[in-house]
Amino acid sequence: MTAAVERGVASPVSAPEPASAPPRRPPVEDGRRPRWQRVLFLVALLGAAVVFLLPFVWLIAASLRPREYVFAPGFLPVPFSPENYARAWDSVPLVTWLLNSVVVGVAAAAAVTLSSAWVAFGFAYFRFPGRNLLFGLVLATMMLPFAVTMIPTYLIWSKLGLTDTQVPLWAGNLFGSAFYIFLLRQFLLSLPREYFEAARVDGASYPQLFWRMAFPLIRPALLVAFVFEFKASWTDLLKPLIYLRNEQLYTLPRGLKVVLDRFGYGGEQQWEIVLAGSVIATVPMIILFFLAQRHFVEGIATTGRKG
């Protein structure tokens, strides 16, 4: 051993062991895109937003111009004529039509949301023979255009004596909608069935399962269905044209048809009043979207992910 030390060879026993190096961690990848891709994406979004906003900006600008400058080029209200809105407000009962649209829209949206949710809960929870076949038949009704059922539906309401009332505009939604039934059923299928089985063991009834357990859990999807149907009712013109005769019962789309006939084509050619009425009819839906934007987008994303 002495000879080995003299030759510069360390003894295997006394040789210090090299310190073990810590394992190298794999490089952490940044999930964000490169800066140039994010900038390009934001520019594309901004360009798309501008393209979609241009018609509405022109509508507002044209509604604030005098009659002879309504169709002038440009997006600025020059000359400025805000009294167009006062004239439109005084020329037709816009307040009445606005209230009618709100009442009919809320009634239609609430009716179709609750009825569709109840039917969707039945298809999602209960297991019975022919369930898939029956659900397929419900979806098959989406293939029927409104023109096919328009006349039979009108005859039913006529026999009930409910024409020239607002009831046909929303009462049909009490029977649900195939689209919303499908949407809510897919959301309900994502919920753990064990929750409902445990509640049944504790003595909960089927209505309690729906109202106390399913209803709070599917609230985002319910909000999506409500907003969709409210928008559809707000912009619906065909049903008010078929059923309403009394001007005091008109909704906004039906009233705007009167404004167009009276002040637009074949009328007095006062297009500034027509455009002002169009802006008044459009603004409430924009306000509704901004108020419910967070919940609305969350509901769509959650429904799509869980469906």
Results as ranks from 00 to 15, higher is better:
Ala4Ile: 10
Ala124Ile: 09
Leu183Glu: 11
Phe290Pro: 04
Ile181Tyr: 08
Trp36Tyr: 14
Thr251Asp: 04
Leu139Lys: 04
Gly74Trp: 10
Gly74Ser: 04
Glu68Cys: 03
Leu99Ser: 14
Gln166Thr: 12
Gly304Leu: 03
Trp157Met: 01
Arg131Ser: 07
Pro240Thr: 09
Val259Ala: 06
Asn132Met: 12
Pro27Asn: 05
Ile242Leu: 15
Ala171Ser: 04
Val227His: 06
Ala49Ile: 13
Pro152Arg: 07
Pro34Ile: 11
Leu133Phe: 03
Phe228Glu: 02
Arg212Phe: 05
Leu162Met: 05
Gln37Val: 09
Leu54His: 03
Val138Glu: 12
Ile60Pro: 00
Asn246Ser: 13
Arg32Gln: 05
Gly31Trp: 01
Ala109Pro: 05
Leu139Glu: 13
Leu45Ile: 03
Thr113Asn: 05
Ala232Arg: 15
Leu76Tyr: 12
Arg24Asn: 06
Tyr180Leu: 01
Ile280Glu: 08
Leu291Asp: 02
Leu237Phe: 15
Gly176Phe: 10
Thr282Ser: 13
Arg87Cys: 02
Pro77Ile: 09
Val39Gly: 00
Phe230Cys: 09
Leu45Ala: 06
Pro152Asn: 01
Phe126Ile: 01
Asn246Tyr: 02
Leu209Arg: 00
Leu260Glu: 15
Pro66Met: 06
Leu217Asn: 08
Ser116Met: 01
His295Ile: 06
Ala232Ser: 13
Met1Ile: 14
Phe296Met: 01
Phe175Leu: 15
Ala61Val: 09
Ala214Phe: 02
Arg33Thr: 05
Asp90Trp: 10
Gly47Asp: 08
Leu260Gly: 12
Ala10Thr: 03
Glu6Tyr: 07
Leu133Asp: 08
Trp271Cys: 12
Thr163Asp: 01
Met150Gln: 12
Leu59Phe: 11
Asn100Met: 06
Thr302Ser: 09
Glu83Gly: 06
Ile286His: 00
Leu244Trp: 05
Phe80Trp: 12
Arg67Ser: 11
Pro77Cys: 07
Ala276Ile: 00
Leu249Arg: 04
Asp236Gln: 00
Leu59Asn: 09
Ser278Val: 04
Val167Gln: 10
Ser158Phe: 05
Leu98Phe: 09
Ala292Asn: 02
Val43Ser: 14
Met213Gly: 13
Val51Cys: 07
Ala117His: 06
Leu169His: 08
Tyr250Thr: 10
Glu194Asp: 12
Ala140Phe: 14
Phe135Met: 14
Ala140Gly: 02
Leu144His: 04
Ser14Trp: 03
Pro26Asp: 12
Val92Tyr: 05
Val104Pro: 08
Phe228Tyr: 05
Phe56Pro: 02
Tyr243Ser: 03
Leu94Ser: 02
Leu137Gly: 01
Glu83Lys: 09
Pro66Lys: 03
